[in-house]
Amino acid sequence: MLLEEILVKPMTRSPIKPILEALIFVADQPIQLKEICQVLSDEDPKEIEQILSDLVIEFNSRDSGMELREIAGGWRISTRPCYHEAIRRYLKTKPSAKLSLASLETLAVIAYKQPVTIPEILEIRGVSSSSAIKTLLDRRLIIPKGRKDCVGRPIMYGTSKEFLIQFGLKDLSELPNIEDFEELLAN
């Protein structure tokens, strides 16, 4: 086949779908619908959205080692979690160390109460959380979200996009409802 023939997009009824798939594959951050629309500016955003949801169904129904899903406000192609053993053998990596209990609890408080200040976290955890905050900042799981308009103008913290990615969330509304934990505890 001639190079020209390979590079020219094949003529199909809906050429957007393969382009979408290619774009999502190439993006190293979850690609937002907005970004896709910018690249395919000639296409109707509504149509792109429709084709995108078709693609997700099609992609995930084929029995492949990869999945296409919405994460942190964008679309991403990744391997399926069940194949991690072979991948780890190949990459020779280990899962990263678990966050300390203190860091995890602090992160939970920030995730549910954001934007939240250090004194407010202290109130809930009953213990100073400054070293946990530092760990979470270092791991880019939380980011400062301005200052609270009160005495001392303490910094408010909230979760980052990296948090959504590392915890597999589309957006914050996907966090399990905190009140459900109450019921869980009652039982």
Partner: peptide, 24 residues
């Protein structure tokens, strides 16, 4: 406090699944 402890555990189990996922 108990509620947030439970939430922290649940969050971690999500993160563990995500750690098994690889991207390009």
């Amino acid at each position: 406090h108990k509620k947030f402890k439970a939430a922290a555990e649940t969050l971690w189990s999500r993160a563990e699944i995500e750690q098994a996922v690889f991207t390009r």
